[in-house]
Amino acid sequence: MGLERLTGLIAFARAASLGSYTAAARALSVSPSAISKSVQRLEQHFGLKLFTRTTRSLTLTPEGRDLFERAMRILHEVEGIDQAAVASRAEPSGTLKITAPLPIGLNILAPALPRFRERYPNVTLDLRLGDQYSDIIEQGIDVLIRVGQLSDSRLISRHLGPHRTGAFASPRYLERKGTPRHPSELSEHDCVNFRYQSSGQALRWTYNEGERSQEVIPEAGITIDLSDAVAATMAADGGIGITPNYVAAPYVLRGELVPVLPQLIMERFPITALWPESRRGSPNVKAFLAFLAEVFPSPAPWDQAVAAHMPGAD
Rank of each mutant, 00 (worst) to 15 (best):
T54I: 06
T55W: 05
T55N: 09
R56P: 00
S57H: 09
S57W: 10
S57R: 15
S57V: 09
L58N: 04
T59Q: 15
T59M: 12
L60I: 13
L60W: 14
T61W: 12
P62T: 13
P62D: 13
E63S: 11
G64S: 08
G64E: 12
G64F: 13
R65I: 00
R65D: 12
D66F: 06
D66L: 15
D66T: 04
D66C: 03
E69I: 09
E69W: 04
R70I: 00
R70D: 13
A71T: 10
A71E: 09
A71Y: 01
A71F: 03
A71N: 04
A71H: 03
M72Y: 02
M72R: 14
I74Y: 02
H76V: 03
H76N: 14
G80S: 10
I81T: 04
I81D: 05
A84W: 00
A85G: 08
A87S: 06
A87Q: 01
A87M: 01
A87Y: 03
S88I: 04
S88T: 04
R89T: 13
R89C: 05
E91G: 01
E91T: 12
P92F: 05
S93D: 02
S93C: 07
G94E: 01
T95L: 02
T95C: 00
L96T: 01
L96F: 07
K97D: 00
K97A: 14
K97T: 15
T99D: 15
T99K: 12
T99G: 10
P101S: 11
P103Q: 03
L106G: 04
I108N: 02
I108E: 06
L109D: 05
L109V: 03
L109S: 06
A110N: 06
A110G: 00
P111I: 07
P111R: 07
